[in-house]
Nucleic acid binder design. Sequence first.
DNA 1: TGGGTGACCATAG
DNA 2: ACTATGGCCACCC
Length: 111
Amino acid sequence: MEKHSFFNNVYDVVRLIPKGKVTSYGAIAHYLGSGRSARLVGWAMNASFNILPLVPAHRVVNRNGMLSGKNHFESPTEMQELLEAEGHKIEDDTIVNFKKVYWDPRVELEM
DNA sequence: TGGGTGACCATAG
DNA sequence: ACTATGGCCACCC
């Protein structure tokens, strides 16, 4: 049975993020039509660890490209490690060339 | 049922 | 330019 919850929708979008790309909470929220309720996306991520299949929450950062949720991973460095493993460059807890690796669901998915 | 919460974003001073 | 505050809306108890 599928849950037509907002959370499930967020997970679906996050799982669609291609490897080597990242996006922001606000982009997902806006894509889902939540408007500015980007907080719900972050909150959904918090529960994403409990949801299967696993959601690449490390590919989701805030508007500044900063790893705001790194503190909520299994380890505070887990997020950075995962992003670096995908070819990203992290500096001062912020993704370098964030704009280049930015993946906007509104554009890529052409809503 | 109602209130509080949350890994944010935008605007105003 | 930086700092502070409000709004937002789904989920949990």
